[in-house]
């Protein structure tokens, strides 16, 4: 079987349940214990909670939650988010989505559902993080398009070579200098403009 996935394990994780004291919270804490996750609960605002960065996952209350509860902007949680949904009123569901909930659990919380929510949330969060950094890298490359064109043109004129040869030269120099193509191009453009200014 080549699509084998490792068994997800959350042992050693720390979870934060942001919900007022309630039997639903008790049920969650029991489930966390079975899974091997140390969980604590807190309400309402966690903006001043010490050691917040030690938590691996946060569970938020879609019924009573509000934006100012968290020290991050809506959608900007640095860890996976699981929304606890009681009322399915669209306003509350979309609030949970705006918070960037990677998974959800419906109240009332019973004896199951947390494990699959943790798996879904950690996968979703990883995918979201990977996409965010890939998009950032692609955006950076897109922005350096003009720079590459300029550097290629400089080499074409200076060395009287074709566009293909100029680009090849830029690439080889970058490899030799152990830097990215974009950095090499930036350096070349900078050198030339410095020379122009000196003249």
């Amino acid at each position: 079987m080549n699509d084998m996935r490792p068994t997800p394990s959350f042992v050693g994780w720390r979870a934060l349940v942001v919900h007022q004291p309630h039997p639903n919270v008790d049920a969650l804490l029991t489930q966390f214990e079975r899974i091997g996750v140390a969980a604590s609960h807190y309400w309402p605002e966690i903006t001043d909670l010490p050691e917040l960065d030690r938590f691996n996952v946060v569970l938020i209350d879609a019924d009573m939650g509000y934006d100012d509860q968290f020290p991050w902007k809506p959608g900007g949680a640095p860890i996976p988010v699981i929304a606890l949904i009681g009322s399915e009123a669209p306003g509350r569901v979309s609030w949970a989505m705006r918070q960037g909930a990677d998974a959800q659990m419906l109240k009332p919380i019973g004896s199951a559902g947390l494990y699959s929510a943790l798996v879904a949330a950690s996968h979703g969060f990883e995918r979201r993080q990977a996409m965010t950094s890939e998009i950032a890298a692609l955006r950076a490359r897109l922005e350096s398009r003009e720079l590459l064109a300029e550097a290629t043109a400089i080499l074409m004129v200076r060395d009287n070579i074709s566009a293909k040869a100029a680009f090849q030269k830029l690439r080889l120099t970058a490899m030799a200098e152990r830097m990215t193509l974009e950095t090499m191009a930036a350096r070349l453009v900078e050198t030339i403009s410095d020379m122009r200014e000196a003249l």
């Binding site: 019924d63 009322s87 009123a89 669209p90 306003g91 509350r92």
Partner: peptide, 9 residues
């Protein structure tokens, strides 16, 4: 409260 939020929405 859920009543106000949802009705206004």
């Amino acid at each position: 409260y859920i009543w106000g939020w949802e009705m206004n929405r």
